[in-house]
Structures are given as C-alpha cells and as structure tokens.
Amino acid sequence: MTQDPNNKKHSGVWILAEQTNGRIGRISHELLTRGRALADKLQTDLTAMVFGCDIPDDDLQDLIVCGADRIIAMEAPELTTFLVEPYAACAAKLIDEYRPEILLAGATSTGRTLMPYLAIKIHAGLTADCTELDIEPETNNLLQTRPAIGGNILATIKTPVHRPQMATVRPHSTRPAEPKDGRTGEIVRLEAPSELLSSRVKRVGFTPSSDEMNIQDAETVVCAGRGIKRGDNIAMISELADLLDGAVGASRDVVDRGWMSYPHQIGLSGKTVTPKLYIGVGVSGSIQHIAGMGTSDHIIAINNDPDAQIFHIAELGLIGDLFEIVPVITKKLKEATSKNG
C-alpha cells in the first residue's frame, strides 16, 4: 500500500492531461478547472501529468496559462497513443516518485481504463464518473460525488487512508479552464524508461468516426423526446437546430426506438452536455436525462404536460402541442435571423 512507508507525505493535486496526435484536448482543461479549485482549497500545487511523444511546447505552456503550476510530460514513441500497460507503468513510476495526494482523470475511454488498472497496481481507492469534487474541511479528504442506482441518488465517497485519492470526472460536467495572463509554471520533460514500455496489446489501425456535429461540442442542443411520436419528425427538430447552429440530441426513449443513433443520446447512460442553450422538445425530464443536461446555461422546454419534470429545471417553459409550437418558432426564427443579416 502506498501509505507512507518512507514517511514521505503525499501532497499536491494532479490531473492526467490527455493528448491525441500530440494535441491536448478539452477534457484536460476541464480537469484544470477541477484541479485548480481543489489545489487552492488545499493551498497546494496543481500538476498535470501527460504521456505522449513530441508534444508541442505550446500545448504544455497552455496548460500552465490555464491553471497548472507544473507539467510532467513523459515521452516515448510507444506512448503516442493510449496503451494501458505502458501508460500504467509510467504513471505508477511518477506517482511513486512524486507522491501526489489526489489524482484526477477524465471519465473517457482512456481514463476509465487506465485509472482502474493503475489503482490496483498502486493500491489506491478510485471513484468513477464524479460530477462534483470538494475537500472535507476537517480532514482535507477529497469528497467525490457521483450518481448511482440509475441516477436516482447521488453518493458522496471518500478514501480515508489510501493515497493518492483517485477519481475519474465526467466529461463536460464543468467548464474548461480559460487562459489567465501572467501565469507561470515549470515544464518537466522526461524520457520514459524503456523497461516500462512493453505492451501485450498493439494498436494496428484506426478508423475515425464520420459522425456529424458532436453534441458535446455544440453551443446549442435541441433535444427530441418521445413526444415527437415518429422518427420522421426528427426533421422538424433538425431544422430548428440548424437555424440555431446547433446539434440534435435525443432522450433514451428516442434512441431505443431507433429514431436517432446512440451518439446523440443525452443523459446518464448517454453523453453529458453543457451547451449555452438546451431546448427540450417532448422530453419529460426524467432524472436520468437531467443528469446529462441539467448544467446547461439556458434551458427551454416544450411539453403539453404542465406537470412535466423538465419544467423544474427550465427557465422558459411552453405548455402546449409541440407540433403546433415548433413550426411557429421556426418561422419566427427565420424572420428574426434574416433581419439580422
């Protein structure tokens, strides 16, 4: 157990920054937001650990400008893309050497694979898919809050003894950190030790998905619920989304019925979105759906049931038949936007 065998205290907050093709992605900036808040509460440093090969200086510098005090980049050609064995071996080595007290990663395909593997290797506790993180004042323990039992409850979990306290954080559950002028920090570039790089899994190919706009990147999401009644009616939702430069999302019922594909699903078992604007059309607002969109900046709902749950989180609620309402909004939007140029 990494429980102070040499009496060396664990300190500092760490995040795992992820890179694809050498570029640091959005999740890393979301983790900076989370990590910075925790480090400030603990009055300690924030370190970003990143694995890859020839990561550009600019990208590492950007992590500092956005909140990190130190970057530790471990590099080798074998670390170009994620492979669990070498990534875990390198991470374990860094953790053993630097002894952070907290390690956060995104709940991404990488984070959700590396972190549980690593947690076993270093005998640490790990909490999956956290949506909130805080520090317990009396003990300085990390408080990790996550949805459980199909989103019906939230559970707060802590790791009293084992270090580091590890958590994966749900993508898009917070804003990415913004650059701040004048921030400085240290960049440590390390060559990965060759004995840590063997892997029994090889990546032999990659096929990028040809999907349209990612609902997680869109500033506006118009979400279709079962109230739209037929798959054909997605066209009406798409038209509205197009006018707003937005993407089309769907509730699980809509995906289960085959009206839209799974990548569009918003909610607990789909994606979390935090757009500037979410419009729910014929969505009831189940707790599992809200788990994926409740933190949108602005929420508008259209539903013919005045008691629909969605109205509890919407700012503006239109009570009526969506088939009558949506075309009028679409028409007025066209007029309004053509006037604006």
Partner: peptide
C-alpha cells in the same frame, strides 16, 4: 479503500 459517506437525492 473507498467509503460512502453520504447518499442524497
């Protein structure tokens, strides 16, 4: 290693 400390709605 982990402990549930609180459960809420």
């Amino acid at each position: 290693p982990t402990r549930v400390v609180k459960i809420f709605r």
